[in-house]
Write a protein that binds this DNA or RNA. Structure first.
Lengths: 173, 173
DNA sequence: GCCTAGGTTCAAAAATTATTGAAACATCAG
DNA sequence: CTGATGTTTCAATAATTTTTGAACCTAGGC
């Protein structure tokens, strides 16, 4: 498309050249990556979050990609994930269509939102199933031990569902 | 992998022939599998647990393998995992070296133990790292915003570590 | 002791998940 | 409107995780 026609004079953008992560940044990223791993959140997502978390000011797409040495696709998907879980927010400066990202004020709230989004659907979907399983067991005169277990599971599930709305992202935002 | 040619009726234990899971059992298994998935616990492990959970009496190795149609290796590893996290316990009947498995009385306790075993090591290992990262940031005169974030992270980590011992598996066991 | 039921290990295969990058898309400054 | 910039999509690939199965242990009955 664009052969190196000599456009270089005025534009400093010729070589993005971002510096790789510093040791202290890597250390923090490792922490986030590890914690994220437990919840099944991919490495790339955790790295993006860590970078934003330790950066003094919001970063744009290219900086994230450049400093983490990661593909456009991964950055895009990572931001999508973080956005979707309200873990980051963008500061779009006017005069530019570029978005700059920073972590949401409360990591705690972010985590709650993330957990909710993972468990809630499972709990909701499970409700009827569990009731069916229990009814089934009762009907066929299963041993009381098992009935008891299944009842407890049902109660748990119900309680979790009731409690869930209380865990709405706190108002302060 | 072809099945061994049938040696007619020669074998005493010729056909273990376990019946596959019933619909209600499958439904429960699906529930456990889904929940386990969120915590990164493999399907096979969740299936084993579900089967034991819904079974009126303890099951031995061969029953588990047979009913779930799963390899020896998986059953062995699955039981190892569940045992390791104290989610099941065995009733060895005398006169036989065979172990029979059943779920631990409290699923709640099991889950707590599981979570602890995942997060605790990460938290412990992170402690010095996080402190280093914070010190580093302070030293280089990073923006207060970031210092604040990192401090909070440190506090969290410390608190989590302090709280962890309180979550010891309850005495009743 | 020996033999074998009962189980474990672990390298290889299969299944699943994450990442890449090029093409498509969208938006806004001009 | 147009074109460059900024971003998303998604099929292909790479990386990781799970499962398998056959070889290998091991305890206990004989």
């Amino acid at each position: 498309m664009k052969p190196p026609s000599d456009k270089s004079a005025g534009r400093r953008k010729s070589r993005p050249s971002f510096e790789p992560l510093q040791p202290h940044e890597i250390e923090l990223a490792d922490f986030f990556v590890r914690m994220a791993g437990i919840l099944g959140v991919p490495r790339s997502v955790a790295e993006i979050y860590a970078l934003l978390y330790i950066s003094p000011n919001p970063l744009d797409f290219d900086h994230i990609q450049g400093r983490l040495g990661m593909s456009k696709g991964s950055v895009s998907q990572g931001l999508k994930f973080l956005r979707g879980h309200e873990m980051i927010l963008s500061v779009k400066e006017q005069g530019s269509r570029r978005e700059r990202w920073q972590p949401t004020p409360s990591l705690a709230a972010s985590l709650v939102a993330l957990l909710r989004s993972q468990f809630l659907p499972a709990l909701e979907q499970a409700q009827p199933s569990l009731q069916r399983v229990l009814a089934d067991a009762q009907q066929r005169g299963t041993q009381p031990e098992v009935i008891e277990r299944l009842s407890r599971l049902n109660r748990w599930n119900s309680r979790a569902l009731e409690l869930a709305p209380l865990l709405l992202p706190p108002p302060g935002a």
